[in-house]
Amino acid sequence: MNVATVIINIFALGCLIFAFIKDRTKAKMALVIALKSFIRVLPTVVAIVIFIGLLLGFVPKSTISNIIGEQAGFKGILVVAVLGAVLHIPSLISFPLASSLLKSGASVTAVAVFITTLTMIGVVTLPLEIRELGKRIAILRNGMSFVIAIVIGLIMGMIL
């Protein structure tokens, strides 16, 4: 077990104890919500974990780094940016996926761009966003997020 795991669990446990001291019934409700969200996310977690296993077991490192590695150039970055914008994966799941891509030869830039477009841009939810916020703001927000995702990724590639 690494340090991050321990810190995260201690932090959650501390919050839970504090919640129970403050309000027992509310804390119990929180636990019910926690259990429900856990069950809801479990199928996706299992699916992604198997996907990662297949990815690392079958796709050679050289293939992945050719497409989205350091030497892949701008085309590779565009590919992950579009992929991140179109796919509808919860950000919770995107981090292990990103870490497996890093391990198998993807560049920091590609991974950062992927996470950022994945979370900030939602092609699937765009109709809903247009209905609530209007065409102008929705399209501007998604379009500009696409650009800043690439900028963020490029800077991260330079500093990390």
């Binding site: 795991t5 669990n9 919050c15 509310k26 929180a30 926690a34 296993g53």
Partner: peptide, 29 residues
């Protein structure tokens, strides 16, 4: 494939309950 999947699964499962508890606490409080 099985070892890789299992390693990632263990890592996920060792933090997911904590993450979900936090989500629950914030949702209620």
């Amino acid at each position: 494939v099985i070892t890789t999947s299992w390693e990632f699964f263990v890592e996920m499962i060792s933090i997911l309950p904590a993450v979900m508890v936090l989500i629950g606490i914030f949702a209620v409080f």
